[in-house]
């Protein structure tokens, strides 16, 4: 290996690289496609993490959709209001005051309120424990099994397992909906940020069996349905569900719930 051979190799690769570079720069002039200025500006405002929380394949795809008017300006769930405001400015519209949404786990039966029927030694996964007898060791077969599929799905650290059930930190949640897809029981729903009342139970059974299995579970007494001044609560499939479009956030249902499962 002499200096001249090193030089020859460098010149060779460098020369080819230079030639290719010049060729490509001419080609890019010749094949230039006019890029939408709005699209470019929006792409710069977006976080650029390509998380896919908006439903598009990445930030560039979302920018194109917003610029073309196919997506609302507040589509970016991560950037939230600051980003939405900037995009609205670019698009010349207002971001509107759309209510921020967060995830909520519809189970309040933690390990102090429920019991374990047997010792489970299988795979530590909610999807797997579903196939164990009575849907897992937990006394309530409808509630959160607490193996944390949702925690793993969350890219923003908003979910954690506390006392054996999943818990959402509302301030960290960006409503990307990944946990909702990850929960094999579909316990996680979308609720408005900082609302006082969420029904924390999906047990459709009545009275005695619920009381036996969970100290706090919903017994389907329908008291919340009757007390709600907005008629926003309905029984769906055996348990109450709040229609947040009607809910005035008064907290009446929470105050009147005999089981205190509205949190």
């Amino acid at each position: 290996m002499t200096v001249s051979s090193i030089l020859a190799a460098t010149l060779m690769v460098g020369g080819v690289g230079l030639f290719v570079g010049i060729f490509l720069s001419f080609a890019s002039k010749a094949f230039a496609v006019p890029v939408d200025e709005k699209e470019q500006a929006i792409a710069e405002v977006l976080p650029g993490a390509n998380c896919g929380g908006c439903g598009f394949s990445g930030c560039a795809a979302l920018a194109a959709a917003i610029a073309a008017g196919n997506a609302p300006v507040n589509s970016c769930v991560v950037g939230q209001k600051p980003v939405a405001d900037k995009i609205a400015e670019i698009m010349g519209t207002s971001a509107g005051s759309d209510q921020r949404k967060v995830a909520f786990v519809r189970c309040v039966g933690d390990c102090e309120r429920t019991t374990e029927n047997y010792v489970y030694t299988g795979p530590k996964s909610c999807a797997a424990v579903k196939f164990a007898p009575t849907g897992g060791p937990k006394s309530c077969r409808f509630g959160c099994t607490g193996f944390g599929e949702c925690v793993q799905a969350c890219e923003f650290g908003a979910l954690s397992i506390q006392k054996g059930i999943a818990h959402v930190d509302e301030d960290l949640c960006v409503d990307c909906k990944k946990c909702m897809a990850a929960c094999p029981k579909g316990l996680i729903i979308e609720v408005p940020y900082h609302y006082v009342s969420h029904i924390g139970c999906v047990n459709p059974e009545k009275g005695k069996p619920v009381m036996n299995n969970c100290k706090i579970g919903c017994i389907s007494c329908q008291k919340c349905v009757k007390t709600c001044p907005q008629q926003a609560i309905e029984m769906v499939g055996g348990f109450p569900v709040i229609d947040y479009a009607k809910c005035s956030n008064c907290g009446e249902c929470k105050a009147n719930c005999p089981r205190k499962c509205i949190v």
């Binding site: 690769v13 080819v16 690289g17 290719v20 060729f23 490509l24 080609a27 890019s28 094949f31 230039a32 496609v33």
Partner: peptide, 17 residues
């Protein structure tokens, strides 16, 4: 690989246009 990469870039521009 330099040549291949450049050609792919070229095809990309061509198709985009």
């Amino acid at each position: 690989i330099l040549i291949v990469a450049a050609l792919v870039q070229f095809v990309e521009m061509f198709l985009k246009k």
